[in-house]
Design a protein around this nucleic acid. Structure first.
Lengths: 235, 235
DNA sequence: ACAAAAGTGTTACGGTTACACCCATGC
DNA sequence: GCATGGGTGTAACCGTAACACTTTTGT
C-alpha cells in the first residue's frame, strides 16, 4: 500500500447496455453483502488516468475503454472509517497494514462505456462478486455511491450528443434501432423513430453496411458502423 | 502544514470582466517573477469546496463567489519539485518544514466568476503581487498552468448558455450591451446585436429597470437585472 | 437637424416534427 | 396477400438570422 498516494482514490461508474436498459457494474464486498462502485488508488508515479485504466482493465479484461472524468468528490461527510474497517475485517485484512485505507479520501469520479457482451467481470481481492445492475433500479450502496452514479448519469446524458458517445456501448456493427435504444436508455425517454434516424444520418458519421436478416417477418434493417474518423476513444 | 491533506491541491481560475475583455487573476512569487494561478490546500477535516471558497475569500475579499469545478489534473509530469524548491527558497521558507510541498500533487481545477469592480486582490505569503491579466494575452506560467486556464475557459464557454452564468461577471444592474460584451469576451466572437437582445429577453429571466443616462448623444439603454428565481449562485 | 446607439417589426432560412407513404421480409 | 417493422418524402412548425426601420438622446 505504501507505493500508492494517500487520501486519493477514484470511483468508476461502468456503463453497459444489455439490449434494453442501461446497467452498471457493482461489486459486493466479502461477507458483508455491501455493494459499491469499483474503485482504486493511484500509484506514486502513475498518471491519474492511467490508474483508472489499469483498474478497469483488471476488472473487465478490456484494453481500450472509453473513459471520461466527470467530478471530484471531496466532502468530509463521505469519510466513514467504520464501514471501511468492517470491510477489511470481513476480508481478514490486517488493520495495521491497511490502516491508511481508514483515512479520509478525495475521490475522482470517472465513467466508462463498454460493450456489454465483451466483458467478463472479475472480482478483486476485497470482493466476492462483481455484477451488472440496472441503473434505474439500484440497490442501496455504501459510501454514498448513489450520488456518484447520479452525477455520472447526468454527465453522460449531457455529453451524449456532443461527444457522440453512444457508440461505445454497442458492438462495432449495429442497427439504427439498437442505437436508438441506447439513446433512449441513457436519456430515459422515448425518441421519435424517423427523426432519430435522420438526425443520426445527417451527422455524416455513420457508414451503412449489409442488411441483417434476423428471420423476422419484416424488412431487414441495415447494419451501421461509425466512421474511424469520428472515433470516440482518443487516448 | 501538517493539518492539510498531502498530495491534494486546488488551482483556481478567477475570471473578471474589465469592460471589454476577459481577465484572470495571477500571482507572482517572491523574487522569481514567476506567475501562477492562485491555489491552495485542503484541511484535514474541510470539504474540498469549502477550501476553495476559503482561499478565494482570502484573496479577493468576496464572500459569495460563483464557483465551478471543471477538471482534476493528475498527470505525473505536472510534478516539478525543483520549481517549488526555488519558490520556497526565494521566500526564505524552511525546506524541512515545508518539505511536503515538494511532493507530487493532484490538483482539482475550479473556475470563479466575480465582479471585477468589487475586488481588491490580496497577495499571500508566497507572492509579491496578485493582478489581472488578459486571458487572450497570457504571459508564460509555471506548473503548466496554461493548460488549466485553457480547460477552464473551454468549460466556461461550454456552460455559458446552459447555466446562464454570464451574470456573475457583472454588477447587479447592467445594460444589454454590457451583457453582450461579456458573452463576446467569453466566446471570443462577435454576436449580432438584435439577435442577442431577443434571445436574452425570450429567456424570461431579465427584469427591466429605469434607463441609464450616460450623457451620450443617443438613446439611453435600459438597465436590466436577473430575476432572483434564476439566481446563479446556489450554495 | 443630425449622428449615434437602442429598441422593434418583418421576412427568410434551416433544422426538427408530424404524418403519410412506400419497401422488404417471412408466414 | 398480409402483417410487421424499416426507410423515405413532404408540409407544418419554430427558433434564429438578416435587414430595415423607428425611437431616443445630446450637441
Amino acid at each position: 500500500m505504501e507505493n500508492y498516494l494517500p487520501h486519493i482514490a477514484y470511483d468508476s461508474v461502468i456503463f453497459g447496455f444489455s439490449g434494453e436498459r442501461l446497467k452498471i457494474l457493482l461489486l459486493e464486498y466479502h461477507n458483508t453483502g455491501w455493494l459499491a462502485l469499483p474503485g482504486g488508488f493511484v500509484k506514486q508515479d502513475e498518471n491519474l488516468d492511467d490508474a483508472v485504466h489499469r483498474g478497469l482493465q483488471e476488472r473487465t479484461g478490456l484494453d481500450k475503454i472509453y473513459l471520461e472524468q466527470f467530478h471530484t468528490f471531496g466532502n468530509v461527510n463521505r469519510h466513514q472509517p467504520e464501514v471501511m474497517k468492517t470491510i477489511l475485517e470481513a476480508s481478514a485484512f490486517s488493520l495495521t497494514e491497511y490502516a491508511l485505507l481508514l483515512d479520509r479520501f478525495i475521490s475522482v469520479g470517472y465513467y466508462a462505456l463498454i460493450d456489454y457482451e465483451k466483458v467478463k467481470p472479475q472480482p478483486d481481492a476485497l470482493s466476492d462478486s462483481i455484477d451488472w445492475y440496472f441503473v434505474d433500479e439500484l440497490p442501496p450502496l455504501i459510501f454514498k455511491h448513489e450520488e456518484i452514479v447520479q452525477k455520472a448519469l447526468a454527465s453522460l446524458q449531457f455529453n451524449l450528443d456532443r461527444k457522440l458517445v453512444g457508440m461505445n456501448l454497442l458492438p462495432s456493427k449495429f442497427t439504427m434501432k439498437e442505437l436508438q435504444q441506447v439513446y433512449e436508455a441513457i436519456l430515459g425517454e422515448k425518441l421519435r423513430r424517423t427523426t432519430f434516424q435522420r438526425k443520426m444520418l445527417s451527422l455524416g458519421i455513420l457508414e451503412r453496411h449489409e442488411k441483417r436478416f434476423n428471420g423476422k417477418a419484416h424488412k431487414a434493417p441495415y447494419l451501421y458502423s461509425f466512421r474511424a474518423s469520428s472515433f470516440a476513444i482518443d487516448r
